[in-house]
Computed example of a mutant assay.
Amino acid sequence: MHKQWSISVLKRASAFIRFSVRLKSTNARPAAPLGSRILTNPEDVFKHNMWDHVQWTEEDQEAARQKAEENSSIRLPSTEQDKFDTDASQYWDQFYEVHQDKFFKDRRWLFLEFPELLPSSAEKRRTNACLSHQVAADPVSGSSHTDGETGHCRHNDPIQHRRKTDTFFPQENAPVEPNETVTRTSFFPGGHASFRILEVGCGVGNSVFPIVNTIKNTDSFLYCCDFSPRAIQLVKDHPDYDEAVCHAFVHDICVEAASFPFPPQSLDVILAVFVLSSIHPQRMQRVVNQLSTYLKHGGVFLFRDYGRYDFSQLRFKKGRCISDNFYTRGDGTCVYFFTKEEVHDLFSKAGLEEIQNLEDKRLQVNRGKKVVMRRVWMQSKYRKPS
């Protein structure tokens, strides 16, 4: 089947390969958002492992839809479905016990696709946001949104007038108004930092350590969590783990009552890479809503995950489907496949504004087996309004 499909892809390549971004030079990769390896000659398809900016014909789209409809026609018995939700952490814990840190590679592409992870990029955004707010507040002085002593915009910091050494954290469940000065006495890790990142579902650190090694010697701090204790232990055991710039902790983002080790409105960036897809669709909105409360005004939520009709969705066997576009793998872990519209609804309903919402379609090539696979990923960026 794979050989037949790859041959048909080659025959029709001139019809379905398009590129959505025109570049002056195909030799230069743009800083963001996607790559620039464009297949212009179908005969070159096996020269590289990946081709970017691929669009499908209506025929391709319909064939994928039918395949997904077919493999979801027989669903997992309802009596078995709940365990994949309630026992999700156990299945992922077993996954990391088997694979340790050998399954995934470090995400070296992070800063190309998400430059917002860099403190300098955030500072530029914050400065622009402050200037726009000052003008909106008072065309002359802009004084209503600024700190009288420093002239810095205060709405981006939940703890106003805080010295850099102050690391106070409100008592659990105590409400904190945006303009309230926190004077309670619980310290929190990373409280000294001016730029804070949270990665949810960090696994064994494939995003963590590229970030940690980049933000060292800056005024930045990274939090990372996963609901697998084994994964978090592997992160902490890594030789590059540094408590001076990183705090790893076990946390289930689906549990509303579970508290984070930092206050609301204290994060500049939240990163979720291939993690929301592992959550039951009925829980996703609540999770995004809760996470968004921890973003500063002007902070960004960075998202990358599986797109609808990705190759990995179409290869599921009958009987593995739990609900529409939501499947369980053989090891008990689950995966959902998103559309652009679903992603937009998910984040906009949480009160965030769209910066970017892309459907990233590529050709992944197994040059040894002469197999071509159509990959679909979602890449999105949403901002908490200033």
Rank of each mutant, 00 (worst) to 15 (best):
F169P: 04
P139T: 09
D157I: 15
F46N: 11
K102Y: 14
G332V: 07
R304P: 07
I159K: 15
G190C: 06
P77D: 02
G332D: 03
L39C: 07
C334I: 01
A272L: 08
S292P: 10
V365Q: 01
R29V: 08
F168N: 08
E113L: 03
T86L: 09
L271M: 06
V255T: 08
L10I: 06
D237E: 11
R367F: 00
P158F: 13
E149T: 15
D252P: 05
S292R: 13
F103G: 04
I322C: 11
L131P: 05
T339K: 01
E199L: 08
P175H: 05
C202T: 10
K236R: 15
C153D: 14
H133N: 07
S380L: 04
D166K: 13
I38A: 12
R65D: 10
T185F: 01
V273F: 08
T167L: 02
H238V: 08
A68L: 09
A257D: 11
S220A: 08
E180P: 03
L295V: 15
N206Q: 13
D166F: 14
R12C: 02
F84N: 04
S194L: 00
Q379M: 09
C130W: 00
V9W: 14
R329I: 00
E116Q: 04
T146Q: 11
S194E: 03
F46D: 13
R29T: 09
D305Q: 05
R75F: 01
Q313H: 06
Y327E: 02
P189Q: 00
A32E: 09
A68M: 08
I159Y: 15
K67W: 11
N156C: 09
E43S: 15
Q4T: 11
R75C: 15
T328N: 07
P33H: 06
V365N: 03
P261F: 07
D101M: 03
N206L: 10
W377T: 03
F114D: 02
I355F: 01
H192F: 07
T218K: 02
M284W: 03
H192A: 08
T167K: 07
F249Q: 07
F316D: 02
R308N: 14
V250N: 08
V135D: 02
H251I: 00
V343N: 07
D60N: 14
K317S: 13
K317R: 12
V273L: 04
I74Y: 10
L314G: 00
P115D: 05
D219G: 00
S144W: 09
I17N: 06
G190I: 04
V98N: 01
F249E: 02
R230L: 10
Q61M: 14
H155A: 10
N156S: 03
T127K: 08
A88D: 01
D147N: 15
R374Q: 11
V273S: 06
Q285D: 02
P263D: 04
S89F: 05
T150L: 08
F114E: 01
Q282S: 07
A63I: 04
T146V: 14
K370R: 07
K318S: 10
Y91K: 00
Q94I: 13
S278P: 15
E80R: 13
L23R: 10
Q4P: 04
S121C: 03
